[in-house]
Design a protein around this nucleic acid. Sequence first.
DNA 1: GGTCGCCTTTGGATCGTTCCAATACGCGGT
DNA 2: ACCGCGTATTGGAACGATCCAAAGGCGACC
Lengths: 389, 389
Amino acid sequence: MPGGHNQTVTLEDVARHAGVSRSTVSLVLGGSRLVARATRERVSASMKALGYVYNRNAALLRSHRSRTVGLLLCQITEPFYAELTDGLDAALDHAGCGAFLANAAESLDRQTRFIERMREHHVDGLVLCPVEGTSPRTIEQLRAWRLPCVQALRLVSADADFVGTDNRAGTDAATTHLIGLGHRRIAFIGGLRRTSVSRDRIGGYRDAMRRHGLEISNDLVIRCASTRRAGAEAVAMLLDRGEPPTAAVCYNDVVAFGVMFGLHDRGLRPGRDFAVVGFDDIDEAEMWRPGLTTVAIDSRQLGRAAADLLLQRIAAPDEAPTLYLTTPRLIVRESCGARSGGMDGRAIATDGREARAHRRGRTDDAHSPRYEAREESSCHWPGEFGPGS
Amino acid sequence: MPGGHNQTVTLEDVARHAGVSRSTVSLVLGGSRLVARATRERVSASMKALGYVYNRNAALLRSHRSRTVGLLLCQITEPFYAELTDGLDAALDHAGCGAFLANAAESLDRQTRFIERMREHHVDGLVLCPVEGTSPRTIEQLRAWRLPCVQALRLVSADADFVGTDNRAGTDAATTHLIGLGHRRIAFIGGLRRTSVSRDRIGGYRDAMRRHGLEISNDLVIRCASTRRAGAEAVAMLLDRGEPPTAAVCYNDVVAFGVMFGLHDRGLRPGRDFAVVGFDDIDEAEMWRPGLTTVAIDSRQLGRAAADLLLQRIAAPDEAPTLYLTTPRLIVRESCGARSGGMDGRAIATDGREARAHRRGRTDDAHSPRYEAREESSCHWPGEFGPGS
DNA sequence: GGTCGCCTTTGGATCGTTCCAATACGCGGT
DNA sequence: ACCGCGTATTGGAACGATCCAAAGGCGACC
């Protein structure tokens, strides 16, 4: 490879060097079977010799395919989204597709700006984790622009593809588990943002409580931000009440960690004096002391699913939208008191460690669509989170 | 805005609609002062009316400026990198520049592939958090390709721009603090990867130990991965020894959290039975129970600094490389036993809460380069981590 | 009235690729 | 000798912007 090129090497240069035409070189680039084997090898050699770099932008200008997709995250600092990105990025990479990533930091304004920018870059499609307050019209607009889009996690419009999990079933299972352990006053903590995720997670909690004839007083539901600090403050507030709850279902693991910190501040031990359940099963949940009982949704697999669905949609833009929902699994560890002699020591259904190992195995497998498509969605879109909410 | 366009709107269309030439529209796009105010407004109106979308790729083809940079992270799931990305992204956004983000997941192979892809996309520059084993030749190559590049955190080549922190000073201060509290057998935990960061953090620890005439036996340095699990395992191993240490300086906060989990497993309380110090001061460090004493390096500001330096370098590609080093600050909380009556209760120099508040204030300020340039670097590049290491 | 200069505007060439219709070529069959 | 056919290759026209040299219009000044 020559050292100090200041002029870019083009197809023309390669063609001249290999003694063929520009078109032939282009065909070689595309891996066409039309080109004779000998020619193909000669051209490849020339490309290497000249240090040729493919110009994706020039190609895109003509072909209208960029082999690049956009990924718009609502909050990259949340561990769950980092893990999701990890899976998604790997899947796209595997498919020879690059990701143009942007972090909206939960700002509707930045989200709008980034969508604009993605269009300017002519990405082939978009994975969107919509920020709170995203209007269904935004999704409609993308459709009108014919920009393939997959909504991830938070459902805004049922008229576009969606990859997520059955949140309602998740918190239902978590709450039911706590009830089975003997708890009666169970709080829900977190879910401040007005998103489909919040609605469904709170909904599942309510379903389970109602089914067991338990009171769902509004002051058992503390809506707070998804931070450790907010979780700690929320549980402090609950413990100050006359008849405090004995357990809490948390919006996600981060809030649950905060709750455990808050318990610590009062000299209470999670899993012994108070039961805590999280949601997401992010990497650190297993390591916690006590280990966090939580609803696992395999972030990385969800990322892969989103990537696969988007690529599929790019290939066939006019098919009806698909809703992919993974089935969450309750992982029982110590923080709810069901294991290692805490609280009441009742026998448990799920072995956390085993389930975890299983999940690991799946995660490390070769890449292929492994999510489950389910028709009976737990999401009931038209309603609370309509336009402008 | 018309509904069902299937043909893209080009400058030509806008020009026709506004009754001017293509060139004039282009000038308007560039915000040129040459165009008369009335014309400018007419053109803008036409753009809006037709739903015009700027085609960055077409522009790039001609102008050789994409107003897009690449950000290559070595591991997006590490909270520190997520925070860095947060700051960097915001700064670029502020400068009207997009970021093409990729996650190498600590794989040299993926890093190479992504650099290739960035070149194909003709990004204006690259912020590179080099993965372990990155050769200085990689950086030289970027230079030969005339692709502006800023190394972040990990220094690979002194011949290119670098943004990082004075790691050696950081662990030196942390270790000195522990020695001041009366500790004599102090371990270093973490820093498995062969990077300049590992070298300098271990170096600072050694410096302080040596300066105080303390033994630096090799079995006090446990090199392990930057995970909670590895930290827990490492401290367990240390405690099994004949004469275990009474304190540990950790490679970063994540390892420190692991160490605290490991202590918990042995029934020991960090800050009372064993002193723990971290590095980075990631968001959650303050919330921990006990609060983590750690070396703060303000990840978001570092991200901003990297963005600024890169933009500067793109503007002036031929200037000599700059090394920006921020000065780390020790934040004393409870985990080292210096506060709240732990261990020996000696008076302390730094108030964690105040320092934190100060940092917050700076972080939220308007965007401007606030890092400190220092000539006396703590990094001694040629050596241990040379080519191919 | 001609010329100079200033402010605006413009046409054409160009960037590096892909697409498409056309061609060159070897070869067996009539 | 000509045709038909399949395989391999090619030149020219896009794609949608920017750049540049040049020109149009209009006062002002000599």
